[in-house]
Amino acid sequence: MKPAAFDWHAPTLLAEALALKAGHGEAARFLAGGQSLVPAMNFRVAQPAVLIDLNRVAVLDHLGFEEDGTLAIGALCRYRRLERDAEVARRLPLLAEALAEVAHPQIRTRGTLGGNLCHADPASEMPAVMLALEARLVLRRAGGIRQVAAAEFFLGPLATALAEDEMLAEIRIPPLPPGSGTAFLEVARRRGDYAMMGVAVVLRRGPDGRCDLARIALCSAGPTPMAAPRAAAALLGQALEPAAFAAAAALAVQEIAPMGSVQASPAYQRHLAGVLLPRALARAAERAA
């Protein structure tokens, strides 16, 4: 299990990194924390001819709230920095809650959110969380920049909207609507394993005490992170109570398309979605102001 040979470039400037990618195209892969790419290279299922190591591109390693409350996360920001940031935990508890379920501290030391999203594993927690938080992703290429919604970024298992010459540069998470409550829950075989099913929810109680905002996203629920818009819509105007949660869960279970894995049959995954969603919704409702 030794990686195949590659040319290694470790630019310090963003422009250099983009130029390298433009030059090498598909033959080149960006290397961020390496926690998904290096195992794949060690198994030789990934054999990039060129690695463009982003670890020295300092401008990609940023984290901070902007004036309008948007959280801007540089593509190279490590999980570790995110999870230790008290402000992130306060303003975006969903992010913090889900981060704790991702792998282990030893992986989070080097792993990045950016790399994780680009890896686009449908069992991964963060892509679903990005859907629930309506994150926007900033994609750069030499001489170009665009933003896509998280919902448009994930195209299939390990497939994203990134063009051959593009890089994910920044993740932008808008502020949570005031008063909303969030929750993340998953069932994995062991601590730190990918979830057999995971749910991320955002809820808000309107002035009339009824739900006026609901978002539901799930991981390990299909070829990409899955939103459950019909289930979310069904919550609107409802009292935040078990009956409504159960009804929403019943809808969500119809909206997802779990693919099954060595650990869980699709039927069991669906069952888990039905179990976790009401629990997560109840928890989010409790947390909503």
Binding site: R189, A264, S265, A267
Partner: peptide
């Protein structure tokens, strides 16, 4: 066993 298998045995 596994949770998934147990679910098949008991519910599935």
């Amino acid at each position: 066993l596994s949770p998934s298998r147990l679910w098949e045995i008991t519910e599935g």
